[in-house]
Amino acid sequence: MKIDFKHNQSAHCENGVVSNLLNFHGLPLSEPMAFGIGSGLFFVYIPFLKVNYAPAFSYRPMPGFIFSRVSKRLGFKIKRIKFSSKEKAQATLDQELAKNNPVGLQVGVYNLPYFPDEYRFHFNAHNLVVYGKEDEQYLVSDPVMPGVTKLTAKELEKVRFAKGALAPKGHIYYPVALPKTFDLKKAIRKGIKHTCKDMLAPVPFVGVKGIKFVAKKIRKWPQKVGVKKTNHYLGQLVRMQEEIGTGGGGFRFIYAAFLQEAAGILEEPKLIELSKELTAIGDQWRDFAVEASRLYKNRSKETDAYNKIADKLEHIADAEKTFYIALKKAIR
């Protein structure tokens, strides 16, 4: 059995699932739109939480938040179920597919057979859609893949019940009670306001302040934890920034695309200018990643090199602060 589901490759897994599922239900929403309305742009630094032996950085809100916010702002509900029993998890999936309902699943990346080996890490907040079952194989639309793929029941069970931080526990979700009409303008405004609030939050580890805080730390790390660990930490920062499904520099470009689309819908030409500004900031993030990776590769001993990239990051934080303040004003 195969549901007539359109797979669209996307830059980020959660946006992609949201956009593809809503498109299926006759609510056309591009990936940048889902990202913007769901306020997907974020930054948080969690020094006491260690991931792969380095402090945790995240460029995105908690998994699931983007979809929840989109649903709240467009006025529909999401049915979410987690399981302790693997059998029940599969039975529920089969039932939904029989009802011609494609579903979103949260999965762990480590055991996904179609990912290149380099991408196999214990990261449990990946998202994909299952849209059918043929010859005991599930038909899978993984939004970061160019085309659709297949997984056996066993393979799917393994990734749905991956363990560790953010364990998916078979998490299955799909939109319900979709409205006939919805207020896109209002939803866009709400999404933008929320992002500005998050990024300008008066909390040291969050948003623009969080980015500044990390810049300060980069200056101190070489003395405090040694060059080797500093490089490893920087590597983590860049990986979180640019890896599939997490994003950072790439996220700025998706958000800039959203602002461009929003400018037309809200008839607010100021947003086009702001979109350009954010594109420039995204380019700066990429420059930062290039410098940081060079430092990592060449194992520079001079602490001045670390100060230089810290300057770069601080500069980004300042540019973003100006940007969010202007964005907040433009939307009022």
């Binding site: 792969n52 991408y119 640019e242 590769k297």
Partner: peptide, 25 residues
Amino acid sequence: DGKYDKALSSGWETKTIVLDKSLEH
């Protein structure tokens, strides 16, 4: 024309460096 659209990338050296390094680790 300054219009946003999707583009495909086959990879980026910067990412490959940090990925390789973390595997080296």
